[in-house]
Design a binder for these strands. Structure first.
Length: 422
RNA sequence: GUGGGCGUAGCUCAGCUGGUUAGAGCACCGGGUUGUGGCCCCGGAGGCCGCGGGUUCAAGUCCCGUCGCUCACCCCA
């Protein structure tokens, strides 16, 4: 019978890889805590109109990549393709704007987009999201980017590039789009995709990968020149702060974002090792979004880390759990009985402890302990039982000694603590 | 949605121009004597060669189709 396979574009995350995921998430949580960000846990399913209204009907995400279906009640619902829209929805629905100061949230979990899978792109993929609502200060932009940088740094990621740009406010964008369109239609030789883009979404021509388009774009108008006074000041303040924070960044005047709601600061973190899908994180400011979704006119800033991609560039050695576990090897029936309670005592003391119930030979149990990655093995046979002792073996060094059974718990705790100190 | 590459053991892969019972390394199970893992030695189990059809005396090998994986385009985290 043919086995049932996972749905296309969706993958299982298994040990030991899952431990690396935990480590990434734990690290991010810790940094979020330091900066005052608190966790939001939101549904995977939202009403379809939420994404249509926020992301933009003409974007690819909404036009052809959403998992949308009609539920049993006849409502159109969609598996979230990104997080910002639903964070804003929850923010408004729960009246969180009444809170004090800048509202800072993070969220992690799966997102869904119906795309053709490839390296670094899955139909169910994971994001670590961060959103700060309620301030338009350039200091906030810079601080959030700094926080992202802190997370990436703690994860020992290197060879990353931070690309920054400003998309301006809707007025600047209007002005720029007009100039750009004029330019695009005054030149010949665009690739077929760009011929389409210059009609539908001219900004996207700017990051076309085709060689000929790039050549043509060299004389294209630059967003920066179309920024209004206020947007321009905001942008340069952000850049100054990033410099002060000692963050290496590159201005990327052609960086645009695929979602309609972005304004002013936009940024992306890329990793060359990833191949075509090289953005590990991306984000920016979205000053009109909250009002667009029916709320007050509040500004917002946020980013998303592509967790799957991040894991691909995470150094191999990082995030592996250290082996600190104990294996109890019992010889004979009565020893096994004694071990059953001992193993629980160890766990009660916070030590990871396991044993075998099948009455295998000591050799087999030692071998098992080794393969399970036990750091220490405690051996209990008739001889030890009679003497009230137990043998503790260090699996790394191979040395072992006999101690009182009563002292097992404290002895192992000391060993584990000593290990931790190194 | 479009294009390229690839489907042989749990994993990574050999298998020459079609020719007998399809191989290796790693992993797994057992053994190398009495109560001690890793290393070494010996043995074992494990494959409708993705699936369907065709050509042929003969197909893992050639042809067609199909499904899947993968990389790239598109788009994005």
């Amino acid at each position: 019978m043919a086995l049932i396979r996972a749905v296309r574009g969706m993958k299982d995350i298994l040990p030991p890889e899952s431990e690396r995921w935990q480590w990434v998430e734990t690290t991010a949580r810790e940094v979020f805590r330091l900066y005052g960000y608190r966790e939001l846990r939101l549904p995977l399913l939202e009403r379809t109109e939420l994404f249509a209204r926020s992301i933009g009907t003409d974007t690819d995400i909404v036009a052809k990549e959403m998992y949308t279906f009609i539920d049993r009640h006849g409502d159109s619902v969609t598996l979230r393709p990104e997080a910002t829209a639903q964070v804003v929805r929850a923010f408004l629905e729960n009246r969180l704007e009444k809170g004090a100061g800048v509202k800072k949230y993070f969220l992690m979990g799966p997102m869904f987009r119906y795309e053709r899978p490839q390296k670094g792109r899955y139909r169910q993929f994971y994001q670590i999201n961060c959103e700060a609502l309620g301030s338009d200060a350039p200091e906030l932009d810079a601080e959030v980017i700094l926080m992202l940088w802190e997370i990436l740094g703690r994860l020992k990621l290197s060879n990353l590039r931070l690309l920054v740009n400003s998309l301006g406010c809707p007025e600047c964008q209007e002005d720029f789009k007009a100039k750009l369109k004029l330019f695009l239609f005054s030149r010949e030789g665009w690739c077929p995709d760009c011929l389409r883009r210059r009609e539908v979404n001219p900004l996207r021509v700017l990051d076309c990968k085709s060689q000929t388009c790039r050549e043509l774009l060299k004389t294209a108008p630059v967003l920066k020149d179309s920024l209004c006074e206020a947007c321009s000041r905001h942008y340069s303040r952000v850049l100054t702060l990033l410099e002060q924070f000692g963050i290496d960044f590159e201005e990327q005047p052609r960086l645009v974002r695929g979602l309609d709601y972005y304004t002013r600061t936009a940024f992306e973190v890329t990793a060359a090792a990833l191949g075509a899908q090289d953005a590990v994180a991306g984000g920016g400011r979205y000053n009109g979004l909250i009002r667009e979704l029916g709320g007050p006119d509040l500004p917002g800033f946020g980013f998303a880390i592509g967790e799957d991609r991040l894991l691909e560039v995470l150094p191999e050695a990082e995030g592996r759990s250290a082996d600190q576990s104990v294996f109890l090897a019992a010889l004979g029936r009565s020893a096994l009985e004694r071990c059953l309670t001992l193993v629980q005592e160890l766990r009660g003391a916070g030590l990871a402890a396991e044993m075998d119930f099948d009455g295998r030979s000591l050799k087999a149990q030692m071998s098992l302990a080794d393969r399970l990655g036990a750091r220490w093995v405690a051996i209990l046979g008739d001889r030890e039982l009679a003497a009230g002792e137990i043998v503790v073996r260090d699996m790394k060094s191979g040395s072992q000694e006999s101690i009182r059974i009563m002292e097992l718990k404290s002895a192992l705790k000391n060993l584990a603590a000593a290990e931790e100190g190194n």
